[in-house]
Simulated scan of single mutants.
Amino acid sequence: MTELSPSGFDLTPPSPAERTRLEATLTREEADVLLHHGTEAPFCGGLLDQKDDGVYGCRLCGLPLFRHQTKFESGTGWPSFWAPFDETHVKAVRDTAYGMVRIETRCARCDSHQGHVFPDGPPPTRLRYCINSVSLQFTPTGEPLPDPLGRDDGVAT
């Protein structure tokens, strides 16, 4: 049965065969971050200075995670957003690694690691989704969203 988000995207997780196919497309750095909860070095990510209109989607499965309108300069060295594309597209998981308590953010469809969310962002949410560039792929407004699962969810808006 297909599970749709309020914005109309299929949230059904990839099958084991689909997941294997998707994971085979990742670089070593992408796999380290997305699959093994790694972190890219600050101020090095390719999307840090991206300012164009568009959508930031999950690098593994293509689910839209953030819109350009919610991106802001946090000074932390990673792309930061104050709200997700759709609340149901980003999953929050308690993270107690490294002797601290944080909230990890994962893609709600494929469960890949994206980054963390902190309560020190700008209004109106006061949240800062601190996301690894390698966890994301940018699609300019008006272009079709990547569809690695063949689910044809739509065009970047």
Rank of each mutant, 00 (worst) to 15 (best):
A97V: 02
V155T: 09
P146I: 13
E87L: 12
S15C: 06
L35G: 09
G46D: 12
P79H: 13
G46S: 11
S74I: 10
P14V: 03
C130D: 00
S74L: 12
R151N: 14
T2D: 15
T25M: 11
T27D: 03
G115R: 03
E23L: 04
C130R: 00
G99Q: 03
G150E: 11
P42E: 02
S135A: 13
P6R: 07
G121D: 07
P6H: 06
Y56F: 14
V33D: 09
R102P: 02
L136M: 08
T76H: 07
H113L: 03
D147H: 13
K71P: 05
R21V: 05
L4T: 15
P122K: 01
P13G: 05
G77Q: 08
T2Q: 15
M100C: 04
G8E: 06
L4Q: 11
P42L: 02
S135Q: 06
D53P: 08
P119Q: 04
T27H: 05
P119S: 03
F81V: 09
R106C: 04
H113Y: 05
V155D: 07
A24Q: 12
G115W: 02
E23F: 03
V55W: 10
P122F: 00
E40A: 05
C130I: 00
W82A: 09
G62Y: 06
L48K: 09
N132R: 00
P6D: 09
P79K: 12
A156K: 04
S7P: 05
V134L: 07
D32A: 15
E87F: 07
R126M: 15
R128W: 04
P6K: 06
G8H: 10
R109G: 03
D111L: 09
P42H: 01
D95N: 01
M1Q: 15
T96K: 01
E73P: 04
V117N: 06
A17F: 01
T141R: 15
E23S: 00
T105R: 01
A24V: 10
F138T: 06
L48R: 10
Y129N: 00
T25R: 12
F85V: 12
V134I: 07
A92T: 15
Q50Y: 14
L60K: 11
G38S: 09
Q69A: 12
L11D: 08
S135K: 08
G46P: 10
T20I: 00
F72Y: 14
G154Q: 11
A41E: 13
Q137S: 11
P64N: 14
A92P: 10
